[in-house]
Design a protein around this nucleic acid. Structure first.
Lengths: 147, 147
DNA sequence: TATTGTTATACTCTATAACTATA
DNA sequence: TATAGTTATAGAGTATAACAATA
């Protein structure tokens, strides 16, 4: 730790952190970086974990439906699902001539459970960092911004 | 961003929105997309606006100091500042043999003021979407997650 | 006609390594 | 030795257009 002293490394006039939108982005980036690091231990990225959880909750879901739910374009789902399939975590089976149902393999279900446990611990640690009087307000406030 | 109505609504079991970290990312993405769209009217991206505001507040700041403040790597500052310089919004002048001080041009100061006005309005609208009882808790909660 | 899965492609953002010159 | 600015490059992530097959 080269910067453990009492003084900031540099001081600058910076009005940005007073902006909720800016702090929203910085907080989201910080949380994403930390979660990405942890999920990396399972060789998963955040998007992989999201997909596995949704497939686990919705057996025989289609790639298009997943994309709609996560705001990921159809074309970009292809390499994402191929990666999960190549890793032996998901399987595809034809629903009809043009749609494929996605399901977790046994190994995929195992990894998904590990990811869910990891994410739940991470979320609990995130909340624990928030002063108690503000904690319960975060999720309702965030929901108002995107749902 | 959150609901692309080119697609029909569908229902799916989705435990993700109950996770603060997930909602944090979705809310940040939604806000970023909207602000990006507005700043686009000034031919600015969010990072451009951040840089202009910091340069305006800190005349003769260096590229390295800006990068530290915004968590942008030195190497990635080069094309960002070149773009602002090419647009006539900032100027460089040598501080010593190896450092350059950055300042806003007259045009840059004008654009920066327009961006600040736009951002302030955007931030106010963001807060207005949050139910009143949660509103004042958002910024303190976010700050605890990254500062 | 609309949707699904897919290919190809391009553009942005970011990360890393290395080089030069200067403090 | 550490820092500032720069170059080159590789990897993600994301966006659009287009196509064949099917509903």
């Amino acid at each position: 730790m080269s910067n453990n002293n009492r003084y900031p490394r540099c001081t600058m006039r910076d009005p940005l952190p007073s902006l909720p939108g800016y702090s929203l982005r910085r907080a989201a980036n910080a949380a994403a970086a930390e979660l990405a690091s942890r999920l990396g231990e399972l060789n998963l990225r955040q998007v992989d974990a999201s997909l596995l959880i949704l497939i686990g909750e919705n057996p025989d879901v289609t790639a298009s439906a997943l994309g709609r739910q996560l705001d990921i374009q159809r074309a970009n789902m292809v390499p994402l699902l191929k990666r999960l399939e190549d890793a032996g975590l998901i399987e595809r089976k034809a629903i009809d001539g043009k749609s494929q149902g996605l399901t977790l393999t046994a190994q995929g279900a195992e990894i998904t459970q590990q990811a869910r446990t990891m994410i739940e611990r991470f979320e609990a640690e995130l909340l624990a960092r928030i002063p108690a009087q503000h904690r319960d307000h975060l999720l309702p406030a965030l929901d108002a911004l995107w749902r």
